[in-house]
């Protein structure tokens, strides 16, 4: 544990430095963000899953969501989520969420969706994961946060922060978004980040946000590519309560469209770690 702590501190410092550098750049070049923005820095590791133990997920941290939800989880998604090892397991130091093409309970595809609902919920902080995404038309992996009161405070009022969404037929681009009242689904506040000389499905990348009362900063690796402040959302700012983490690989649905002949299965999202820091 000792060495781990040291490692994190060093990492934190590096990141702090990076943030200052990037933010300086951002301020100089940005035209739509308030120049008085402050940068939150989070160095205190409060949750991490390094996926170091092969087998099932840590049940004290993760829930499995099962089935097809309502209307394919609200997006006409085509997969049936299971907790079978064919769809979700920890192996060789990675979490694998795997989409398969198979007839299962009336669905054509299976996959998995895991959440920390009721097990780890937090307002503000740095949320990050190191992920290698699957690809192909119709494949839709995501790393995102949902307000922990969505069952009573109906979406989008409860808020959604998408740290990373990826469409498998656009291999060099990811999206970071927030959904809230008056700015949800197609009207979400969103920005994409495209790699110039790399793509997301051939290697690991760190996807993170730094979320404070004043702003949500979006990162890919060392690059800050988006800052969303209360002034940027065309409605109520609903990001001051506890949120929980979701990792999933959807297949088909309104956003990515259905898989085509070139989509191969199985398709696995590999997650090296999930870490959350506080101030």
């Amino acid at each position: 544990m000792m060495s781990k702590t040291i490692k994190y501190i060093i990492k934190g410092k590096t990141f702090l430095f990076m943030s200052f550098l990037l933010v300086t750049l951002f301020v100089i070049s940005s035209c739509d963000t308030d120049e008085t923005q402050t940068v939150a820095t989070f160095t205190n590791l409060v949750m991490s899953d390094e996926f170091d133990t092969d087998g099932a997920l840590d049940s004290e941290l993760w829930n499995h969501e099962i089935g097809t939800g309502v209307n394919g989880w609200g997006n006409n998604e085509l997969q049936y989520y299971t907790d079978r090892t064919e769809n979700v397991k920890v192996e060789n130091g990675y979490l694998l969420i795997t989409a398969n093409r198979e007839d299962f309970n009336g669905s054509l595809y299976t996959s998995a969706r895991i959440t920390t609902q009721g097990l780890f919920e937090q307002a503000y902080g740095r949320f990050e994961a190191r992920i290698k995404v699957p690809s192909g038309k119709g494949i839709w992996p995501a790393f995102w946060l949902l307000g922990n009161d969505c069952e009573t405070n109906i979406w989008p009022q409860c808020g959604e922060i998408d740290i990373m969404e990826f469409l498998g037929d656009n291999p060099t681009t990811i999206f970071g978004s927030v959904h809230g009242p008056g700015y949800s689904a197609g009207q979400a506040v969103t920005k994409s980040y495209t790699l110039e000389n790399d793509r997301y499905d051939t290697g690991f990348h760190v996807f993170g946000i730094e979320w404070s009362p004043e702003s949500i900063n979006y990162y890919v690796d060392d690059a800050l590519y988006q800052t969303i402040t209360p002034a940027d959302v065309p409605g109520e700012w609903v990001f001051d309560s506890k949120f929980y983490i979701i990792l999933n690989v959807a297949v088909g649905g309104n956003f990515p469209g259905a898989p085509n002949d070139e989509t191969t299965f199985p398709q696995s999202m590999l997650v090296d770690y999930v870490r959350v820091y506080q101030q």
């Binding site: 000389n197 790399d198 793509r199 051939t202």
Partner: peptide, 10 residues
């Protein structure tokens, strides 16, 4: 060119 944006060869 060194594109870096090609998928894993199959």
């Amino acid at each position: 060119e060194k594109l870096g944006t090609l998928g894993t060869p199959v």
